[in-house]
């Protein structure tokens, strides 16, 4: 479908965002000797093998013990280390919420919680592993920064950027092979939204894998004479409220798009911002209070209403409410 569209961003290669994390971690490790890695028996899945190979003395296999991993990481910061913990998003958040809350967030420790296989696009493993509540849990924690990059390049850049940032961070990425449509040499600014496409009728605020769907949706809307602005919200917390307000003041309505529950997700944060500053129609694209299931990423995105077609529908609905 997208091959025939006049896309503002294109790709020649697909890769998983978790590989962006693995490659970013290796570079961060080369730049800063204080960067250490911890993994709970998922080195291959998290793409942490290259870091482990190059820096064996700075890499710690924790076994299947995620609660311990979070505590270890918090302790390591006390001696100046910058720990990156790696496991699936489900085990990085829900399983260890109290450990993160007390030992990392409340204690304001410089731990980077790096979470792969987030959302429905994990695919066939099914709902036990497809966490759709992690952003909500993490953004509620004071001191926590929440980042959900959109492709391999942005994930790599984000991984390197959080190594230089002092404070707890939740970095969310995924499993599927996904278009690489952002530049390799991008500068990743934590907390700064990226206006990827200018438009005037509606703003699409997207995060993670859904940014690509937003890029496709923009081209589809353009074919119908609708001008959509696409803003990449890679940092969900702190939210770039200024960019959101400025854009919606111009377009008059918005759509949020994310691979997450509507409750507690990016859409909630955008709604809060708009209600307080610039009330305007907002439509949500996300999972509506249900668990996922087994299937291919594409099938699941379609069934649960997370693809470009759904963004197009939501954009039209938002415009109709203006």
């Amino acid at each position: 479908m997208d091959k025939t569209l006049d896309l503002k961003f294109t790709y020649t290669e697909k890769k998983d965002t978790r590989s962006g994390f693995g490659d970013g971690l290796l570079e961060a490790g080369r730049k800063n000797p204080n960067v250490v890695g911890l993994c709970a028996d998922l080195i291959g899945s998290l793409k942490m093998g290259a870091f482990q190979k190059e820096f064996p003395e700075r890499f710690f296999q924790v076994g299947i013990a995620e609660a311990n991993m979070i505590g270890l990481a918090a302790g390591m910061t006390i001696n100046g280390k910058i720990p990156f913990t790696g496991t699936f998003a489900n085990f990085s958040t829900g399983r260890v919420y109290d450990q993160i809350r007390q030992s990392v967030a409340y204690s304001d420790k410089n731990v980077k919680i790096c979470a792969s296989h987030a959302g429905l696009t994990l695919g066939e493993d099914g709902a036990t592993h497809q966490i759709l509540e992690d952003v909500g849990m993490m953004k509620m924690l004071p001191h926590m920064t929440v980042i959900n990059p959109c492709d391999y390049n942005q994930t790599k850049a984000a991984t390197m950027a959080i190594a230089e940032y002092e404070g707890p961070v939740y970095l969310r990425f995924g499993r599927p092979s996904w278009p690489i449509f952002t530049p390799a040499d991008q500068k990743f600014e934590i907390g700064k939204a990226w206006k990827m496409i200018e438009g005037k009728d509606v703003t699409i605020f997207a995060t993670g894998h859904l940014v690509w769907e937003a890029v496709v949706a923009e081209a589809m809307l353009r074919e119908e004479g609708i001008s959509a602005e696409v803003i990449n919200i890679h940092t969900i917390k702190p939210l770039d409220e200024e960019a959101i307000i400025e854009s919606v003041k111009k377009t008059g309505c918005a759509v949020s798009a994310e691979e997450h529950q509507l409750n507690g997700g990016l859409g909630d944060s955008i709604a809060q911002t708009l209600i307080r500053n610039n009330p305007a129609p907002l439509e949500y694209v996300g999972v509506n209070d249900s668990f996922g299931e087994s299937g291919t990423p594409t099938e699941l995105m379609e069934k649960y209403g997370l693809n470009a077609e759904n963004i197009v529908k939501a954009a039209k609905a938002a415009i109709a409410r203006k």
């Binding site: 505590g71 270890l72 918090a74 302790g75 006390i78 280390k81 109290d98 007390q102 204690s107």
Partner: peptide, 19 residues
Amino acid sequence: IASGSLGQGLSVATGAAQA
């Protein structure tokens, strides 16, 4: 480090010791 919710201190101390 904050403590109160039990069971976390040994992990933290172990991390600090390893660092």
